[in-house]
Simulated scan of single mutants.
Amino acid sequence: MGVVAKRSTMTFFSDAVSHYCHRVRIVLAEKGVTVDIIDVDPEQLPEEVSELNPYNSLPTLVDRDLALYESKVMMEYLDERFPHPPLLPVYPVARGESRQYIYRIERDWCRLVDEILAGGNQKGLDKARKELRDSLLTIAPIFTEKPFFMSEEFTLVDCCLAPILWRLPQLGVSLPQTRQSKPLIEYMQRLFDRPSFQESLTEKERELRNEASVA
C-alpha cells in the first residue's frame, strides 16, 4: 500500500448525488467546518481513496491521520470533534433513541431509496415508491408536536432524513397536499430553508430536483 501524504485540512471525498454523502455534507455545513470537499465519480475513484478506504467507496472523510468510510461514523465523529452546535442529545437515553431512529431510517427508508435508484422492473419500482410514500405519510403527525424529528432541536436524525426528502421528486414519489401530509410538508420546508442545508447542496443535487419537478 502506498504512502498517503498528510493533509493539513480535513478532506471529504464525496459523490455529488449520493444521499449518504449528502447527510455528511449537511453536518459539515451545520458545524461550519473548514473542509476540502472533492466531488468524485464513484465509477472512477482516485487511487488515494482506495489507499485510505479498504472498501474503496464513498463517502470517505480524512482528518489528518484518520480516515473514516461510514457515513454514520463520520457524522458522530464530527459532532464530537466540533461540539457546537450539538447534533445529538446530551443524555444517554436520548442519544440512544436518536441512534435507533437513524437505524430505522436506514432499514425502512434508505433501503427503499437505494432500491428505486438502482432501477429494475416497473412493478418492483412502483411497490417501493408506494411503500416509501405511505411510510412517510404515516409519520407526518409527529411534526405537529415538535419542529424536528422527535426533537425541539435539529439533530443528526434530521441530517439523515433531509437528503431523502429532497430527492422525492427524483424518486418519483409525490406527497398529496392534504391535511394529513401538511405537517410533513412544513417540516420539509423547515429543513430545506436552513442555511446549512442550502450550503450542503451540490449543483447536481439542485439540478436533480429542478429537473424532476419540471418533468
Rank of each mutant, 00 (worst) to 15 (best):
G2P: 13
G2K: 13
V4M: 12
A5Y: 09
A5H: 14
R7L: 10
S8Q: 15
T9R: 13
T11G: 02
F13L: 04
D15I: 02
H19V: 05
C21P: 02
C21V: 09
V24C: 05
V24R: 00
V27N: 02
L28Q: 00
E30K: 03
E30S: 05
K31G: 05
K31C: 08
I37G: 01
I38R: 05
I38G: 01
I38L: 08
D39K: 04
V40P: 01
D41A: 09
P42G: 06
E43K: 14
Q44W: 11
L45V: 07
E48W: 04
N53F: 02
S57Y: 03
L58R: 00
L58D: 00
D63T: 08
R64S: 14
L66K: 13
L66D: 13
A67I: 06
Y69Q: 04
K72L: 12
M74D: 01
E80T: 15
R81I: 09
P83A: 13
P83Y: 14
P85C: 06
P85A: 05
P86A: 12
P89E: 10
P89M: 09
P89Y: 07
V90F: 09
Y91L: 11
Y91E: 13
P92L: 10
P92T: 13
V93A: 13
V93G: 08
R95T: 10
E97Y: 07
E97D: 12
R99S: 05
Q100T: 13
Q100V: 12
Q100P: 00
I102G: 01
Y103G: 08
Y103M: 10
I105S: 01
E106Y: 09
E106F: 04
R107I: 11
D108H: 07
E115Q: 14
L117M: 11
L117Y: 07
A118W: 10
A118P: 06
G120I: 11
Q122A: 15
K123W: 09
L125H: 09
A128M: 06
R129P: 02
D134W: 09
S135I: 13
L137A: 05
T138C: 05
I142E: 03
F143S: 03
F143Q: 02
F143D: 02
T144C: 10
T144M: 10
E145K: 12
K146W: 07
K146D: 11
P147M: 04
P147W: 03
F149T: 00
F149A: 01
E153P: 06
E153V: 13
F154Y: 13
C159D: 01
L161M: 15
A162C: 12
A162Y: 00
P163V: 04
P163I: 03
R167M: 11
L168Q: 04
L168V: 07
Q170D: 08
Q170E: 14
L171I: 08
L171W: 02
V173I: 10
S174C: 11
P176C: 10
T178M: 07
Q180K: 12
K182Y: 08
P183C: 07
P183T: 07
R194S: 10
R194W: 11
S196A: 15
F197L: 06
Q198R: 12
E199P: 02
K204N: 15
L208F: 09
A212S: 15
S213D: 12
A215D: 10
